[in-house]
Nucleic acid binder design. Sequence first.
RNA 1: GCGGAAGUGGCGGAAUCGGUAGACGCGCACGACUCAAACUCGUGUACUACGGUGUGAGGGUUCGAGUCCCUCCUUCCGCACCA
Length: 1002
Amino acid sequence: MQEFDFSIIEAEARKKWADNDVYKVNIDTSKPKYYVLDMFPYPSGAGLHVGHPLGYIASDIFSRYKRLKGFNVLHPMGFDAFGLPAEQYAIQTGQHPAKTTIENIATYKRQLDKIGFSYDWSREVVTSEPEYYRWTQWIFIQLFNSWYDKSAEKARNISELTAIFAQSGNTDLQAACDEKTAEFTAEEWTSFSEKQQQEILMQYRLAYQSYALVNWCPALGTVLANDEIVNGVSERGGHPVERKKMSQWFLRITAYAERLLQGLDTLDWSDSMKEMQRNWIGKSIGAMVSFPLEGHNADVEVFTTRVDTIFGVSFLVIAPEHDLVSQITTPEYAEAVDAYKKVCAAKSDIERQQEKVVSGQFTGAYVTNPLNGAKVPVFIADYVLAGYGTGAVMAVPSGDQRDFSFARKFDLPIIQILDAQKNTEEEADPTKDGKYVNSDFINGMTYSEAVPAVIAELEKLGKGYGKVNFRMRDAGFSRQRYWGEPFPVYYDQDGIVRVLDETELPLTLPTVEDFKPTADGRSPLANAPEWVNALGDGKTRETDTMPAFAGSSWYFLRYMDPKNEEAFVGQEAQAYWQDVDLYIGGTEHAVGHLLYSRFWHKFFKDNNWVSTEEPFKKLVNQGMIQGRSNFIYKAVVINNVTPKDVKSKSHLKHNIHSPIVAISKNVYLKLKKLSNQELSSLTQEEELEYKEILHKISEVESNINEFYKTHDIAHQGTYSVPNFPENYIRTHIDVNVVDNDKININKLLAKKNKLDNYFFITDSEGNIECDWEVEKMSKSKFNVVNPDDMIAQYGADTFRMFEMFLGPIEAHKPWDTNGIEGVSKFVRKVWRLYNFDEAGNPTVKEEASKDELKVLHKAIKKVTDDIERFSFNTAVSALMIAVNDFGKLTPLSRTTLETIPVLMAPLAPFIAEALWTRMGKEGTVFDAAFPLFDEKNLVEDNVLYPVSINGKVRVKLEVSASLNSKEVEELVLGEADVQKWLEGKSPKKVIVVPGRIVNIVL
RNA sequence: GCGGAAGUGGCGGAAUCGGUAGACGCGCACGACUCAAACUCGUGUACUACGGUGUGAGGGUUCGAGUCCCUCCUUCCGCACCA
């Protein structure tokens, strides 16, 4: 008998596929197209971990399945190769990012190849290669040369805009532009200098420059996009971020806000994903209101979503950075306002966010409520953001909790505005129910009546209007980095921005001596003056580079036509492949990449470069494979602080006076972090006590033990420490305060010298309690599992099916190799069904039995269904069931033995190809047709009916499948076993669900 | 705080339309093979006081609820002084 050896069959299949170019795909109009795309990886130095392939395996299964179903499948792969890690590595080691990127890509490709994907590598794209970024630069030029016509709802060429300006100025123009754009006539336009004209055009371009407050990260020496900041610190590196005014490139994505929002309705994406994009776009329908400033000929403009609450306004808050602040501040408050502004400016974004205490400063200025003439004081406060809306807020303490806290602190009136508002003396109630009170002409109205009434009155007075506002802001497109696409622009002698001619592309990245940003925060490209000044005549190149999302916003189009030198994607290729039918990737790109790609695609559509409005028809989000980290509890004990009221979690949750809380790990106590609201409601004494406890924790934390220097610690479980020293802490409920910080064991073992002094929580026998937790798999958490070893041990087919077998594709799941033996066993069982002789010939039976056909067709039906609905874990399970059943029916017929490989091919391509070959079939199994199931093989003669009496299954009866419901009912009621349960009573009701169940109600 | 997802055996999970809860796999137990072990094969495996009870808790709709409705709890993810 020929034994199963995955290394032999893998080598065999690889050779066959390579020799015949099996995965090469071309335009074939005789077949329907299907485009399956993975979110391409960033080739990091760490290589692939087991989390990466989850989505790739799923997409590969679906690609292979669609191919077997007769589709011409495009399934490419490439690399998102520009990015910060390569640059930081370059700064550390002096290695050129291009070199490390090439090496990393080679590693990735080698690892991917082991898993057996059906990529057409001839279509590979790498965003950092000049042949690719040439077109990224080209697209930038097109954006620069475009403006957005709101009346036509599409982008148009900038030359059409200058024509309009020359003809009629901009007074009647409906265009997406900067807020501050001034009106001018045709005559004025023609009289402007070129520099002035260019400055105006810049306010309309889809790629434009502007000065703006940006997220400046001193540590990285660069500006970060909103979605590159996580919890107030940079996503990569976790450095603090502050605000800085800089000249930046932006993309006018806000022009497309409404289309980006509407387009979501046409997409087959998960609701949660669409919701995230909706939230990001943040459309809110509200109103602009002008509050006239007392003593100034100016208004403070405010955007509000609750214009109906205008009679409850008791103060106005504007952002400390607001332009008006310096003008309106009265002399007596000037000093205090300046001081407050300084405090805000000195705070980084994180600190500003972490600030729990309500703060603000009166400016001395007043505005008038345009509807009732009330005198309203104007404050500045850091909770109002300069970048959102108008940077000013009308505050309604009875309806908004922040406004309420502010009013309390500064002793401002709290005006009830709706009769349904509860308890406005104690807290704000943002309800829209009830009738208005204290509200002049809307008294007695409901919410839906009041809003239009107020807006109409404001419009009549010229003091406001209804307005749609978007939360989304234009995308910052400049990075002060080396490893990105250079902008194809230069500044001429007059400082006017000019784009390069398309024939001059690509503008390649020069080699620089130093990859660090310059001391003044300019990009490393400033370190290459010969490149910056290459054009002569005082012309200088832009030294910023594009962000990582530039290349990834259109790569899916390049795969359609990767070698085209005339266009970023050719018309023929675009017309055939159109858009992505199935896109698989992680949710982490929900608002970044997926939104930018949609924006660019819509821009392309406006220019008829693509044929569809949306790039990604269907989106499946694979869950994260999480790592398992092992922990030890660290205890910090504080003396002389007695926890008050520590009874139960729920009790404490509502008791803000106790800063101490019991947590789930049975006995440990921990200092409860107080929320904003809770902190502000503490008395001075309580606040002191709270701070004292914090102080003591840090004090004791510095007095630590050196356990790890004397003991080795196992990686998990309960670890018994012999002769556990007396002075180590045993935890009891009456230990005063115990911080339950956990320490990652692997991290501890990796950095032994830093272990210094810790107390560890032990049980009464002195065992150290070890716990484990599921976390994101990442290098920094010391929990990364590499797939290579597993593939070497079990083979690619087993690895693929095992990853699928872990659970539903969308679910986040911890990596746990328990269970891979089961899949491995299954693969070997498949092989055994064929009972190959020494010469490699299978044992074959003449004709399939009825049972055999039933098993086969049941499996075909289930596997087809499961793959169609991306339920790959149950597809594997269905194959296992079939193989277990087949095992009892060997030898099997030729039909069955020839069908099994095709059925398995999407999931386990290697063994499928091997079996296909050994069955004497020509060509590759992937040119076969996926089997169809035949219902007639699934028909049962008898049905086993569970008979339930009053909802409890009591009897099971085998009944001929040919009987109708009435006949089944009679037969069931006549049965002695059933009669026994009826206890002589006659049933009130009998429900027969054909083929499923009989329920008798007594 | 807002938004989204999810809570099912010792574990991962299954139940696709409201119709036998726990498929499949791991683990565990016993048995066969073996000098022995591994492999392989077979049997069993939610709990149980053997009446029943069971899908986070409590209500409801229904002949029938893991699935639908209401209230609540917990966990994870995303967003956040967003006006």
